[in-house]
């Protein structure tokens, strides 16, 4: 059953579909929540809220803007960032961040023959200078503004902005070179 059909079932309160929907996406949603918060208990609360919000706003989903999973992960990320901001703390230490950058650059399927867009993106991240990938990760997964990235990294605001802009530009160019439309 397509993700879109599952979401349609969610809007009519079909309990079987609700369970199937949660089962299909719970690993990704929980993983996304943990990637931002770095705390299993908080990640569970965020993930539960993400499903609840998806359920409440299912009729607002517009498939022309992207797949269901991307929509759901955006909800998750935003909720996780809201929680971090409310608690005025960031989920990870600097060493965790370095590990996460390395993990993202390596990717879970790099040893396989997979050559999908995700794998190519992993490769492209691996080619970024470390300071650029760190800035990118702080913004993408911690929800930090450029000013917050600058503070966390101890660099001028202009440098943080440049790192973010350059990193995104390189990733897009890299994917375009490989024939992937970002």
């Amino acid at each position: 059953m397509s993700d879109e059909a599952l979401l349609a079932g969610l809007t009519v309160n079909d309990p079987g579909v609700a369970t199937a929907f949660v089962r299909r996406f719970q690993g990704k949603v929980f993983g996304a929540a943990f990637a931002v918060t770095g705390d299993r208990d908080l990640a569970e609360e965020v993930a539960q809220q993400a499903f609840e919000r998806a359920w409440r706003h299912a009729r607002m989903y517009d498939p022309r803007r992207g797949p269901v999973q991307a929509w759901l992960l955006t909800i998750t990320r935003n909720l996780a960032i809201d929680h971090l901001r409310a608690r005025r703390r960031w989920g990870f230490e600097a060493t965790d961040l370095t590990d996460q950058v390395a993990s993202l650059a390596r990717g879970p399927e790099m040893e396989a023959v997979a050559d999908d867009a995700g794998t190519r993106l992993h490769r492209a991240i691996g080619l970024l200078p470390p300071e650029q990938s760190r800035a990118l990760l702080l913004a993408a997964f911690r929800g930090m503004t450029a000013a917050e990235v600058a503070e966390a990294e101890g660099i001028p605001l202009g440098t943080a902005k440049t790192r973010l802009r350059t990193a995104m530009g390189k990733l897009r160019a890299s994917l375009s070179d490989q024939g992937v439309e970002p």
Binding site: F30, G31, A32, E44, T74, A140
Partner: peptide, 24 residues
């Protein structure tokens, strides 16, 4: 779209036992 793709890179994680039941 690229930003969404970045979010999609986060690996799946097994949620705590009972998570599905609690969400439903």
């Amino acid at each position: 779209t690229l930003s969404d793709a970045l979010c999609d890179l986060v690996p799946s994680m097994e949620p705590p036992v009972g998570f599905e039941t609690r969400v439903v």
